[in-house]
Design a protein around this nucleic acid. Structure first.
Length: 573
RNA sequence: CGGAGCGUAGCUCAGCCUGGUAGAGCGCCAGCUUUGGGAGCUGGAUGUCGCAGGUUCGAAUCCUGUCGCUCCGACCA
């Protein structure tokens, strides 16, 4: 491509809306333009990258036995009513774009395709002999995100690959899931990411097991915990951890109510009471749907609301308001405790609240705390579960290792759906005994546009993007200088033609600009290899070869340069 | 949905408080010089000041409404 005819001019100044390095660089390098909040034009350079990412994903899906199709973005309300997700996606979460067509029917733009694909397959499958099946598509998705952010990382319209597997039983689903899991690893490896597969919470899609594929980057929206000794890694939403436990007092002491004015927060409280922080207890009052729940965690921990919501099986979970807390506990915020709460408040506690002798908790009385509290004697045992947030420094739940923390960008998420949709939508088959059984499903997403953004987030420097050869828009940036010189111009045209004949993808900067501008643009766009010609190098019969990752160029003859390009970019010799 | 901010040239922004008919830098166009990391000089073009109403002799500026964008929070496959 001749850069003089290329659409996507570079900007010297960073547009003010840029929120992260990747977002700013995409705007400055002419990869995207914003059309409205969370909606972007994918300009030619980005589109080439998206095409390459899609092709890698496509090849790995097909290798895993999935078949490509394309479903409509425009979907009827009826299918979503059938699965029971209409209300949740429109009224409750409001994430779905929905509107009436001219006939008055309500339609929506698909945020995901479980309903449509289940509808396809229920018409396709009647016998166990028809299973398994697995289909995928690469398509634009629509989600009316509450808060679009970070350019393509969280957009309202984005490109996604989604795949769906259909099996006769759990064992079949295991196999389909495993094949997809391997395909995801191959995709990440071929692209060249530093990434991790982590255990994840399945969230609103539902189902039993799920893994996320996280690209490691400091600006990632997700927090990942991983063990320094074993392979354990999980999203913080889901992560479990072991806490250090301490020697306990030999004897229970009498429970006491202690006055401590304005002591909010466990650190000052522990200091005031002259007890370690682990003896304190946080009790948080939540509203879960239309009920109230008190959640207890050890003082040095925080509540993981996702774990609590999963345990309770509620639709919504939010902290009670100060007014509600006052009404329920009789105290200001900060003094809630498990003793003396109204009977309708369900009390649940993290495992690590237990097995402590003489612990502290709020007294449900402003400025007062109870000390030397003991389960069984002062209050009945509550329901125990895992309700705490895992953090760096906690023990690994699988081995003796210690958990570390890092940030990540979720680019893929795979789920074992089970029979949630097949039961709701009657996607059933007859087994060998003639019994009707629901198909067992899995679903598997990869964010194509998000991969491009995540790559830049992970691979850039102060000058610009640093593309890897697998997904770079072009392999080579040909940047001849002194184009006013006929010999250089002629040589540049020859080299441009020769590179293309060799099957190398070239962006040819044929603009009559100065060296500084060309090099700055080349660094910003970040193609893996820059080839430079000038009066000097043409006279010497050589070409300057510079990798974006290397500080210094080499002078080579053209044949040698071509051989090195092919080697770096994995092209056939 | 709650709180806040911003819409002025292609981009980044000043002007607004204190009303008087629109500016800078970069970019763009022409010419000359320069020519390996965004060079210099000279000359030039560019705006219904987001939109609509109101106040006023007069509104980018004050008031009201509206649309758009952004940030913080709540929320979130």
């Amino acid at each position: 491509m001749r850069q003089s005819r290329h659409v996507g001019r570079t900007l010297r100044e960073t547009p003010k809306d840029a929120q992260t390095a990747a977002h700013a660089l995409m705007l400055r390098a002419g990869f995207i333009q914003q059309v409205s909040a969370g909606v972007y034009n994918y300009l030619p350079l980005l589109y080439r990258t998206l095409t390459k990412i899609s092709q890698i994903v496509r090849e790995e899906m097909e290798r895993a036995g999935a078949e490509e199709l394309l479903m409509p973005a425009l979907q009827p309300r009826e299918l979503w009513e059938e699965s029971g997700r209409w209300k949740r996606y429109t009224a409750v979460d409001g994430i779905m774009f929905a509107f009436k067509d001219r006939r008055g029917s309500t339609v929506c733009l698909g945020p995901t395709h479980e309903e449509v694909v289940t509808d396809i397959l229920r018409k396709e499958i009647s016998s166990y002999k028809d299973l398994p099946k697995c289909v995928f598509q690469i398509q634009t998705k629509f989600r009316d995100e509450i808060r679009p952010r970070f350019g393509l990382i969280r957009a309202r319209e984005f490109i996604m690959k989604d795949a769906y597997s259909f099996d006769a039983d759990e064992a079949g689903l295991e196999q389909s899931y495993e094949a997809m899991r391997q395909a995801y690893h191959r995709v990440c490896q071929r692209i060249g990411f530093r990434y991790r597969e982590v255990e994840a919470d399945p969230g609103a899609i539902g189902g039993s097991g799920s893994s996320e594929f996280m690209v490691l980057a400091d600006t990632g929206e997700e927090t990942i915990l991983f063990c320094d000794r074993c392979q354990y890694a999980a999203n913080q939403e889901k992560a479990e951890s072991r806490l250090q436990e301490y020697p306990q007092d030999p004897e229970p002491l009498p429970m006491e109510e202690v006055y401590g004015k304005g002591l909010i927060g466990v650190e000052p409280l522990a200091e005031f009471l002259k007890i370690p922080v682990w003896k304190t207890t946080k009790t948080l009052i939540y509203q879960a749907d239309d009920r109230f729940v008190a959640v207890m965690v050890r003082g040095d921990c925080d509540v993981n609301e996702i774990k609590v919501a999963n345990y309770l099986g509620c639709q919504s979970l939010k902290l009670a308001t100060p007014e509600q807390i006052k009404e329920l506990t009789g105290a200001e915020v900060g003094y809630a405790g498990p003793i003396g709460l109204p009977a309708e408040v369900r009390i649940i506690a993290d495992h690590y609240v237990n097995n402590r002798v003489n612990f502290e908790c709020g007294a449900n009385k402003t400025d007062h705390h109870n000390i030397n509290v003991n389960f069984g004697r002062d209050l009945p045992l509550p329901e125990f579960g895992d309700f705490k947030i895992a953090r760096a420094g906690h023990g690994c739940p699988r081995c003796d290792g210690v958990l570390q923390e890092t940030r990540g960008i979720e680019i893929g998420h795979i789920f074992k759906l089970g029979t949630k949709y097949s039961e709701a939508m009657e996607c059933v088959y007859l087994d060998a005994q003639g019994q009707r059984r629901p198909v067992v499903m899995g679903c598997y997403g990869i964010g194509i546009t998000r991969i491009a953004a995540a790559w830049i987030e992970q691979h850039h420097d102060d000058k610009g993007i640093i593309w890897g050869p697998a997904i770079a828009p072009y392999h080579v940036h040909l940047t001849p200088l002194n184009l006013e010189d006929d010999q250089v111009r002629q040589r540049a045209e020859e080299v441009y033609q020769r590179l293309q004949d060799e099957g190398i993808e070239v962006l040819y900067d044929d603009r009559p600009l100065r060296a500084g501008e060309k090099f700055s643009d080349a660094d910003l766009i970040g193609l893996p290899i820059r080839l430079t010609l000038s009066k000097r190098t043409v006279a010497a019969g050589q070409i300057e070869f510079k990798e974006r990752t290397q500080p210094k160029p080499d002078l080579l003859d053209l044949d040698t340069a071509i051989a090195r390009i092919k080697e770096i970019c994995g092209l056939k010799g």
